[in-house]
Design a protein around this nucleic acid. Structure first.
Lengths: 198, 198
DNA sequence: CAAAAAGTTGACTGATGAGTCAATCAAAAA
DNA sequence: TTTTTGATTGACTCATCAGTCAACTTTTTG
């Protein structure tokens, strides 16, 4: 290619990077870090073995970068909910609907990935800490929404952060439930919101 | 040893079997199936490599046997709740308290193990089906308790099985939450029961 | 004590998979 | 066309395990 690096190349490279990451996310979520082979990733995206290492330094490297990205998107979604028009109630309804709408499988993959990472014995403490910080940041956003709702008298009393934990726990528990082959349910936003209702 | 097999030996053998299983449960939950080495198990319980294979046919064999056992205990706990004295409300309170009392880490290990197994790409469909059947059996038990509570007018209306799913999802979501290093909470049984309250 | 039966060992084998690298290809610039 | 330089390839290396097995130890019975 060109000696001078065109903008073009960066764009193509970034696209490929995204494509690989996206495929790898699904595979990591379904097989776990250890059971995922580089060849699983490369074959799913038509990439030679060697070329993989031009995009990512190592297997751990792609894994961590994917997880950080997932958590950043989680934070972003919470922020988006918070900045939305409407009451805090509406904001959380929107957030809940978003969680279960679209492709529940993708949502699940992201969730499972993060659960595994948080439990992982192989990741360094440093990385796990960064991961937890991002998670905590998202939770604080939800707590802020709840706090506002409490001031308006539409949510139950109690520590907003704790209520946020109940809220997210239920959301994620349901996500996990629907990943089983047995009896997936259509999640009722009302039933989810009951928990917070004043 | 004796040519004739004393009862003694079976007892000792069973004890060791339990000891190995219990250690392996923890390790599998923390590292995942693929990342767990036989040597991780043997070294944690002072067992030579070869001897491991006198107790279990293979790595998959011990893994599956542990998971089936966990699910059987889950079913048993639900049954115990159902057969308890007291109102359906009391029964679910007891169940919830049991989930979060004692050693939350062990409860978590069991939970994480089952999540991974249900997602696993490596287990055969046959085994996954058996696993799901056991899970479904436990859920039906909880649904029965809820159904009874509905007749007594203490629980909200709605499909009992769906409500059971919400109930279990919240329980397990909270369990997962408390496994993180960030901000573990003392679970309030009342807050959990709010969901079902008429 | 000798024989029998089970417990126990760890070196070995064979498979697998992460990461490397020297060689080749292809596109843009000169 | 030739040069330049990143893209791309896949065979290779090396480490890591799962599972086997032949030998050794311990305990019990006759």
């Amino acid at each position: 290619m060109a000696p001078k690096n065109d903008e073009q190349f960066k764009i193509i490279r970034d696209q490929r990077y995204e494509e690989i990451s996206s495929a790898a996310l699904k595979i990591f979520a379904r097989k776990g870090f250890a059971a995922t082979k580089i060849s699983d990733i490369t074959s799913s995206v038509n990439l030679s073995h060697g070329l993989f290492y031009h995009y990512f330094k190592s297997k751990e490297n792609i894994y961590v970068s994917i997880i950080m990205n997932v958590l950043d998107m989680f934070i972003e979604t919470v922020n988006e909910a918070e900045n939305r028009k409407g009451t805090p109630w509406d904001q959380l309804v929107w957030f809940t609907e978003l969680t279960f709408s679209g492709s529940p499988e993708e949502a699940l993959d992201r969730r499972v990935l993060v659960i595994e990472a948080q439990h992982s014995d192989t990741l360094s403490n440093e990385i796990k800490q960064e991961l937890n910080q991002k998670y905590a940041a998202a939770m604080k956003g939800i707590a802020r929404i709840i706090s506002k709702g409490q001031q308006d008298g539409i949510f139950v009393d109690g520590d907003p952060l704790e209520l946020a934990i109940y809220f997210i726990s239920l959301n994620q528990g349901l996500l996990l439930w629907n990943s089983k082959d047995i009896h997936p349910i259509k999640v009722s936003v009302n039933q989810v919101m009951r928990q917070l209702q004043a």
